[in-house]
């Protein structure tokens, strides 16, 4: 039954994503999970941000989040989440998209521009180095620090009689 349930995700995930798509998935998730102020700070430090036109101006809306019964069963609607999205097109035609939790329009706009720049061969390495990698490292450090505090609350049972077998 779990197989049946995970079919949908599997179909989506394994839809033979190209390396480019996987790389894009990765930087988009870095942008969407990073703190707003820090992302904007790094964006502002980028020189020569390109001219762009909005395909869709930043707008806030909702995405219904779904869970699964028992964690692995049938899908159900848990509640919505505020999301802000934005799409831009650079003068060379490159399109950048952003969908991010929260209501910050500036963050969505900066992320869409960065998503577009990251697709440009001439800017990719630079943006990875000045924006994506620092954000990723900072997030990983925060998560690791939290995880170590959490690990310290793990119960170490000491059992007097061990098992029955």
């Amino acid at each position: 039954m779990r197989n049946e349930n995970s079919n949908r995700e599997a179909a989506l995930q394994q839809a033979a994503l190209s390396d480019d798509q996987r790389a894009r998935q990765d930087w988009i998730s870095v942008l969407s999970t990073s703190p707003t102020a820090r992302l904007i700070e790094l964006f502002d430090a980028v020189s020569d941000t390109p001219e762009f036109a909005f395909l869709r101006k930043p707008e806030s809306g909702l995405i219904m989040t779904q869970g699964r019964i028992g964690g692995t069963g049938g899908a159900f609607n848990m509640g919505e989440m505020t999301v802000t999205r934005c799409s831009v097109q650079l003068t060379d035609g490159t399109i950048g998209h952003a969908y991010q939790a929260g209501r910050d329009k500036k963050k969505a706009r900066c992320s869409a521009i960065l998503d577009a720049m990251l697709q440009q061969p001439e800017r990719h390495a630079e943006i990875m180095g000045t924006v994506i990698e620092p954000l990723k490292a900072e997030k990983a450090a925060l998560d690791a620090a939290r995880s170590k505090k959490i690990a310290a609350t793990k119960v170490e049972f000491f059992t007097l009689v061990r098992g029955e077998n």
Partner: peptide
């Protein structure tokens, strides 16, 4: 991939 804007002020 072939996208154009919609309303210029959507709301």
């Amino acid at each position: 991939t072939d996208l154009t804007p919609g309303f210029s002020d959507p709301v």
